Amino acid sequence: MKKLLSLVLLTAFFVGNAQETANRFFYELTFKPKKEAETTEKVMTVLDITKDKSIYRDYTILAQDSILKVQVEAMQKSGVFKDLSKSITQPKFAFKVRKSYPSMKYTYSETISSGFTPIEIGYSDDAKIVWKIDASAKQNIGAYKTQKATADFGGRQWTAWFTNDIPLQDGPYKFSGLPGLIVKIEDSGKNYSWELKGNKKIENYNEVPYIETISFGGAPKLTEVSKEKFEKTYNDYKKDPFATARPMLKPEMLSQKMPGSDVTIGEMVKQKEKMLKEFYESNNNPIEIETAPAKSGK
C-alpha cells in the first residue's frame, strides 16, 4: 500500500506531457564565498525535475528570461546594438548538475569558450552518497515534516532533512538517494546551506534559458570527458578565458566599433576579461574541498 501511495503521489507531479512539464523547486543557498569570510551571501537556485531527469543550477539567469526577451526584441526593432551584459545580473555559480532517473547518475558541467563559441563540458559519476538516517530525529521545516540524515561528502560533513511527503529521491547540487526530497541540507561548518522555499509547475518547459537560444552558436551542447580532463580544461580556462580566442583577434578587428555602439571590440574584450576574472576569483571556498575520482567518463 505504501509503495502504491508513493507511485500515485509521484505520478501527480507529472500530469500531462512529461517532455513539456517540469516541477521547479526553489532552494535558497546561503554560503561563504571566501574561506576566511565571516559574512555569508545568498542566492536562489532551482532544481527542475521532469519525468526522467533533473537539473540543478543558479536561478539568476533564468529569472531574467522575460526581461532579456523584451530588450532583444527592442534591439531588433530599432536596429541599434546594445551590450546586454551591462544589464544582466551575473550568476554566483555557473555550473549545472543533471541527474538521470531512476539511476541518479549525475553529470556535473561548466560552460566555457572555445574561440568565440560557448561549449559545455562535464563529467559523469554514478557514485552514491552513503547516508545514515536518524529515525528518531524529526522536525517541521516550513510546511514539511522532515527526518534527519547525515553523510560525509566532498571533504565535508553534511546534515540533511528530507520529507517523505514528496517521494522524489533528489535534492540540490549532487545530493540525492534519500527516500524523499531534501528540504534542507548544510555542512557542519555552515559554509553551504540550502533550504527549500517553494515549488511550482512549469508547462511547456524548456531547459535552455532564452539568452542561450539567441547567443552566437546557439545553446552549447554538453560534451562529456573524464573528470581528470574536465578539471585540467576548466582550470586552464579560469586562468585565461580568452586563450583560444586571442589568436583570432587581429589588430584591425580590435579597433572596430561594435555595431550601433561607440565601444570597440578591443574594449569589449577587456571588459569581458575583467568580468570573468572577477567572477572566478569571487569564490575560493568550493562546495567540495575533496573530490573522489569519477567512475565513468570518456
Rank of each mutant, 00 (worst) to 15 (best):
L222Q: 12
T146V: 06
E41N: 10
M104N: 14
A127N: 07
A22R: 04
N206S: 11
G16L: 05
M253F: 09
I88M: 15
A245T: 04
I112C: 08
W194K: 01
S188L: 03
M44S: 07
L68K: 06
E267Y: 06
K148S: 09
K148C: 06
E278C: 00
S255H: 07
M268V: 00
K3V: 14
K272P: 00
G218P: 09
S296W: 01
Q157H: 15
V263Y: 00
F242M: 13
T45L: 11
P91A: 08
M75G: 02
V8Q: 13
E267H: 02
K239F: 01
L5G: 08
V80C: 00
A18P: 01
S282K: 13
M248W: 02
I265V: 14
E38T: 14
D236S: 10
Y123F: 13
W131R: 03
E267N: 05
N17W: 05
K35G: 11
Y237A: 02
S296H: 04
E195W: 00
K184N: 14
E38I: 09
L68S: 11
E212T: 08
G177R: 07
F26D: 12
P102W: 01
Y173F: 14
K201H: 10
S136E: 14
Q64Y: 05
K148V: 11
K295E: 15
I121H: 04
N285C: 09
I185Y: 04
A137K: 11
W161M: 11
F242Y: 14
K86S: 11
P33M: 10
K270Y: 05
S113D: 13
K197F: 03
A74M: 10
K145C: 09
L29W: 12
T39D: 15
P251Q: 09
D152T: 13
